[in-house]
Amino acid sequence: MRYAYYPGCSAHSTARDMHESCLAVSKALGIELNEIKGWTCCGASAAHQTDRKLAVSLASANLLLAKQMGMDMVVNCAACYNRSKTANYEIINSENVRKSVADSLGDTYDGSVPVRHFVEILLKDIGPVNLRKKIINPLRDLKVAAYYGCYLVRPSEVTNFDDPENPTIMESLIDAIGGTNVEWSGKVDCCGGMQNLTQTEITVRRSAAVIDMAQAAGAECIVVACPMCQVSLDVRQADMEKLLGRKYNMPVIYLTQLVGLALGLSPVELGFNKLMVNPAAVLNKVKAAA
């Protein structure tokens, strides 16, 4: 299993925990991730809000490098995933976009590199059956709310990830590692991450609503696959307390971190020490189960 790996900018900053846990899990499962040399920013939300053509060109630069490596491109960040898939979609469907990308890169790119989120690799290439065989610390009765947010599932014609209203990929994996999925209706709601710095109160209210729903469903932690969701839900809990006048203490962890725990990897190796909301409740439960 060899892939071209696109870490994305946040992998070396606010989502280092996501990146580190992905690498550790890959190593444990024999997944070979080859980091794309010289990779550049996909443009994130700033580029498409400024100039959609620029956004497609920025994402295509990395897709072209992956194409030259002859491998599928694996992405961990849901926003990079969405932007890269959007670039492929627009290049395939528009002659104009193809031309503008060729002019911008000085090379042609045809939109053909498969872009895959690491969660898809775990489900489809490894598979729940094989994953289950490698489990050392099954999560037993840890109650988990699988949270997808926006970028993985929408628009589904572009991402083609799973059912956009009721995805279940993460639940299948959580089930395979021995966790208990809670039933809840917040899994594809928006955390408001895009306004995290610009109109913070919107993010705080949206993210609090997501946590409230997970809590009401009995979840002991929320599991995410997007750095924007992770930062909004985790880092903003102190602001939720201030704004809404009630206590928030919900660990928000990456799916790769939870899978890593079940594989017997150490919390430090998986970046648990970087989380703002103390994940002790999760760690103690997994340890107790071991």
């Binding site: 990779w39 890169l105 880092v235 970087k274």
Partner: peptide, 28 residues
């Protein structure tokens, strides 16, 4: 706290192909 935990990087990113970026932005 974020800096202490390493939740945000202090140093600028390195390793990207900056020439390609320059080209894309100037074309745009």
């Amino acid at each position: 706290m974020m800096l202490k935990k390493g939740k945000i990087a202090i140093l600028p990113p390195s390793g990207a192909n900056k020439d390609k970026m320059k080209r894309i932005f100037s074309k745009s």
